[in-house]
Design a protein around this nucleic acid. Sequence first.
DNA 1: AACTCCATCAACCGCGTGCAA
DNA 2: CTTGCACGCGGTTGATGGAGT
Length: 425
Amino acid sequence: MGRPPCCDKTNVKRGLWTAEEDAKILAYVSRHGTGNWTAVPKKAGLKRCGKSCRLRWTNYLRPDLKHDTFTPQEEELIIRLHATIGSRWSLIANQLPGRTDNDVKNFWNTKLRKKLQEMGIDPVTHKPISQIIIDYGNISGLPNKTTRFGSLNRDLRNAFMSTKPEPVSSSVTQDHSISNMTSNNTSTGVDIKTPKMEPTPEMSFNNCRSSSWDLLAQIHAMQLVTGSSNNCNKNKEIVQPNYFHEGSSSSSSASSSNIINNQAGSSSPPPSYLLNPQSSLVPTTEPSSPLFSWSEFLHEDAFLPSDQQQQPQQQQQKQDLQWMSYSNGSSSIQAQHEMPKMENFKNVDEQRTSNGVREMGNGNFNYMGQQTSYHPVVNGMAGEAATGIGPSSASNNSFVKGILDQEIHDSEMLWEFPSLFDDSY
DNA sequence: AACTCCATCAACCGCGTGCAA
DNA sequence: CTTGCACGCGGTTGATGGAGT
């Protein structure tokens, strides 16, 4: 017995959204806000499934979304996070302001996965394919001493993360539990069931009282990846992670597992930071080279000579520098919240597309009580001519974003990481 | 110019979870 | 405690456009 359909499939429109439909959604949201999506189609005058409306808003129309290509920094972060928590796209997307889970997922599937494969790295385990082959050959043998958390495959990680640990009193203990448990599982070759980890609302980063161990484990893992920890409602500063850039003395080159070691042994107080969905990943200080060492994603390359492996002291130095470099992100927040300038919009009733001429933005918008017909001017050119063509074009969308930025920018939320170091946890 | 192949990404689908009744 | 609804998630599909032949 299957689940009943969420709406009457015969009477709903499917497929790509038109500008007119987008306008209706935007007009509705600007008036009523989000929520109760099942009622949106009727109230907004759309012949769409409510679910489809929500998706359109979430993945495309939301004003805080970025529609440009992924930066090398974002690319790095996605890879790191994927190596740590697997395909938890929404969690990964939460670390990438302006990106949706769909964006990240598509980017991974179309670009990053292939890129890793071409470099001989298994995109699931993030290990060298050559090593995986050897591991299969030694499946009944003793564990490789270098096998640690970052090198484990996703199933083992999932198995670990789904296992509620004994209460621990400190992050250090947790770190050890991570390393030990995962190593043991690997070494014994136990066939572990891997229950799917489903995120819950509790797992949202702005919930500081999450009781989900899955979330704790994953956030912890993500902290290790991003190289920081954080406290709730304490410092309102952004400490963006520094990324491992080749040849940069002020950047962190540690792999996930190396970071585990660093944190366990570090006496520095964990920095607090907030992650603002509108903030960019651009460091607040002089940016380091965007160069990205793929080889560093071979978390523990058993084939690397020991003198080429990261030394603990080097790692600690880099991490200290990293924290200094990203101590203040307040100016970044303000920049992101800059109000759109309405003079950048002008009336355009028609928009040329690759398929000819179609109407866009022709007065369907209700902005501040007025029917409006604006279209963005981008780089001195109107609409799609400057931004691309077709339904994924930023043209109509940027208009809408302009409107909505003004509507809701004051109520933008700051997202916070729950603290893993908070005693009251 | 016509056709095929392929990459991209928006949209869809089914399922899990939380919550209120 | 059960049920139904709403929402969010991750996997998958399919429309589209560009590149190649």
